[in-house]
Every structure is written in structure tokens, then in C-alpha cells.
Computed example of a mutant assay.
Amino acid sequence: MGGGKKQSPAQAEKSQAAETAKKEGQKKGDRKDQKPKANTISVIIDEGQAMNFIKGAKVFTAQELSRQTNVKISAANALLQNLLKKGTVKRVGGYSGHHIYVPA
């Protein structure tokens, strides 16, 4: 015969906000004031920009290269593997896939 448990003040405030949003026709997941993401990450790497960064750096990692060229880490890793085969860069350290490279 008991009733529901009394809500805490925070829970009561949340349910009241949800009710007013429902009355206004706004769904819980909709956010009109939300800004679109400014970061755009591409998959295609600009080799000229990458080579400028590589030549100017003493040592670097794939993560750092991806940040500087605004590409995904997988694209930076693929470029580094190609440059490693060509002999343009050398791997000097690192572990578990986080390798450190130097320009050759």
C-alpha cells in the first residue's frame, strides 16, 4: 500500500525541467544551442606539409605528425611506414606501437 519514494530536490528539479521541455515541444536529446564540431580530421595526408614537419623536427611520433597535419593517426602511421621503407625516416625508439622517428 505504500507510495512512491519521495524524490530528492535534484531529482524533482530534473523532472520539472523535463516536463517544461516536453510542453515546449523540445525533445530531451535536441539541443538547438549546441555548436557544430570545429575539428575536421581528414584521411588524405598532404605529403609536402608532412615532409616540412619531418625535416624541421629532431624527433617525432605518429601522433604528433597526425596533429600537425590534421589527419588520422592511421594515415600518419601509413605514411611513416612508407617513408621507413624508402629510408627517409628511421625508427629510434618507442614501444607498443608508439614509436619515435627521426629524419634520415
Rank of each mutant, 00 (worst) to 15 (best):
residue 68 Q to W: 07
residue 51 M to F: 03
residue 76 A to P: 01
residue 90 K to Q: 09
residue 59 V to I: 14
residue 27 K to G: 13
residue 59 V to T: 14
residue 49 Q to C: 09
residue 16 Q to A: 15
residue 60 F to E: 05
residue 72 K to R: 15
residue 42 S to I: 14
residue 67 R to C: 12
residue 100 I to L: 08
residue 71 V to T: 05
residue 64 E to C: 01
residue 68 Q to Y: 05
residue 55 K to C: 00
residue 83 L to W: 06
residue 5 K to C: 11
residue 39 N to M: 15
residue 5 K to P: 01
residue 5 K to Q: 11
residue 87 G to P: 07
residue 56 G to K: 07
residue 97 G to F: 05
residue 99 H to T: 04
residue 98 H to S: 14
residue 87 G to K: 08
residue 9 P to V: 11
residue 44 I to S: 15
residue 3 G to E: 06
residue 16 Q to D: 12
residue 7 Q to N: 14
residue 81 Q to C: 10
residue 4 G to V: 09
residue 99 H to I: 03
residue 88 T to V: 12
residue 77 N to A: 13
residue 45 I to C: 07
residue 37 K to I: 08
residue 31 R to G: 07
residue 67 R to N: 13
residue 97 G to W: 01
residue 28 K to E: 04
residue 18 A to H: 01
residue 87 G to M: 01
residue 5 K to S: 15
residue 26 Q to G: 09
residue 83 L to P: 03
residue 12 A to I: 08
residue 3 G to A: 10
residue 10 A to R: 15
residue 85 K to P: 03
residue 83 L to A: 06
residue 48 G to V: 07
residue 7 Q to D: 11
residue 88 T to M: 08
residue 56 G to T: 03
residue 79 L to Y: 02
residue 64 E to K: 08
residue 75 A to V: 04
residue 24 E to Y: 04
residue 56 G to E: 02
residue 84 L to A: 03
residue 36 P to W: 09
residue 63 Q to K: 13
residue 70 N to K: 14
residue 45 I to W: 01
residue 82 N to L: 11
residue 28 K to F: 05
residue 71 V to R: 03
residue 63 Q to R: 14
residue 15 S to E: 14
residue 57 A to W: 00
residue 67 R to E: 14
residue 56 G to F: 00
residue 25 G to R: 04
residue 42 S to H: 14
residue 99 H to L: 11
residue 1 M to I: 08
residue 70 N to E: 13
residue 37 K to Q: 13
residue 77 N to Y: 03
residue 60 F to D: 06
residue 100 I to W: 00
residue 85 K to V: 06
residue 43 V to M: 10
residue 58 K to M: 06
